[in-house]
């Protein structure tokens, strides 16, 4: 009996294509649902109805939209840097799929078991910035370039508090020396292993949001900025930069950016669930269901935030990051380290 799905797949030559296909299919459905949910949530917040016509409750509306985008002509403006312009959507698209594979949906449902999963997720997140910059630079459009510059500065800045807040959790897991029963043997919890973080919370029945509330808030805010969500949607601020880095993209290329954006949302909220909300931990319902429920709750809050606030200005965003978020997260990390050392 293979313990994880990844072990099952290891035995087959088809492992990679099957895994990729599964993830792709699941993510496509997820994105379709998320776009629908976004439209519904925004509609309800604004006292509207949202999509109602295509399918029950308008559920198939985004499917129709996707079909439209697929069937649209791919326009390549005449003066773009063609290699960069063509490659950027793919580069935005690929790492998010890879990052999802690392997520521990339940104790046994992990597509890729990795001892340093957390690092990998952040590393894949970093690639997305390159894609955005390529898109902005290659488009030969001032709005796109401005959006790309903003995006790079923003992503690099906010990765610091994001990682620092995650590091506090890692510190807790590592230093507390949780011992976990894994595969019949007792192992010391490894704070960088995503499933270990969840198991540490699972076994002690204590979600880290209670242990690390400040880190959780910092993580959430940084995650909003990382995924370019309002009020930090400055790289694609439609009232300033038309559409930011994807101004010149159309059809399927545009929808790949769209896909990446929404999958990124899923990844950061899954990571939030892993780090702070006990992962698959929950009564009655099966683990993966809990995992997704929690993730979608986090996404709901992200949507709620988006449809409430106006957008920050670029310099204020940076000020907020460097003067508020980073000092706070460093303080939090130091305090955690201190407490951990004393205990």
């Amino acid at each position: 009996m293979p313990e994880t799905l990844s072990q099952l797949l290891d035995d087959s030559v088809l492992a990679m294509p099957i895994a990729a296909g599964l993830i792709m299919g699941a993510l496509t459905i997820n994105v379709l649902m998320l776009v629908w949910a976004e439209r519904k949530v925004s509609a309800w917040i604004q006292r509207r109805m949202g999509p109602t016509e295509v399918g029950p409750f308008g559920l198939l509306q985004t499917l129709a939209d996707m079909l439209k985008l697929i069937s649209k002509q791919l326009i390549t403006p005449s003066n773009v840097d063609k290699p960069l312009f063509h490659l950027a959507p793919l580069l935005a698209f690929a790492p998010v799929i890879a990052a999802v594979a690392l997520m521990p949906f339940s104790k046994s449902l992990i597509l890729v078991q990795n001892d340093f999963g957390l690092l990998f997720v952040f590393a894949f997140g970093g690639i997305a910035v390159i894609a955005i910059f390529m898109a902005g630079w290659g488009s030969n459009n001032k709005y796109a370039l401005l959006g790309a510059i903003r995006s790079v500065a923003q992503s690099i800045s906010y990765e610091i508090p994001l990682i620092l807040s995650a590091l506090s959790v890692v510190l807790v897991v590592n230093a507390m020396g949780f011992t976990l029963a894994s595969g019949g043997s007792i192992v010391v919890a490894n704070g960088l292993d995503l499933s270990h973080i969840v198991m540490a919370q699972d076994q002690h029945g204590l979600w880290f949001v209670l242990v690390q509330p400040i880190a959780a808030i910092i993580y959430f805010i940084s995650a909003l900025a990382e995924t370019n969500r309002a009020p930090f949607d400055i790289p694609e601020a439609e009232s300033e930069l038309v559409a930011g880095f994807h101004t010149e993209y159309s059809g399927m290329r545009f929808s790949m950016f769209f896909f990446a954006e929404y999958t990124n949302m899923l990844i950061v909220s899954m990571l939030a669930v892993v780090l702070f909300f006990g992962g698959w931990d929950g009564p009655v319902l099966p683990g993966p269901l809990w995992f997704f429920l929690k993730s979608y709750m986090v996404i709901f809050v992200m949507m709620w935030v988006r449809w409430t606030f106006p957008r920050l200005r670029f310099d204020q965003l940076m000020t907020f990051c460097w003067k508020v978020m980073i000092p706070l997260s460093i303080l939090n990390l130091l305090a955690t380290a201190f407490v951990v050392a004393v205990l």
Binding site: V41, A43, W44, I45, R47, R48, M49, W304, W307, T308
Partner: peptide
């Protein structure tokens, strides 16, 4: 966020919208 949630609740739970 409290205000937007109260509006959300009016539409979602109260089934009242302005469309």
């Amino acid at each position: 966020m409290r205000i937007t949630f109260s509006q959300f609740a009016k539409t979602f739970f109260g089934r009242k919208n302005v469309t």
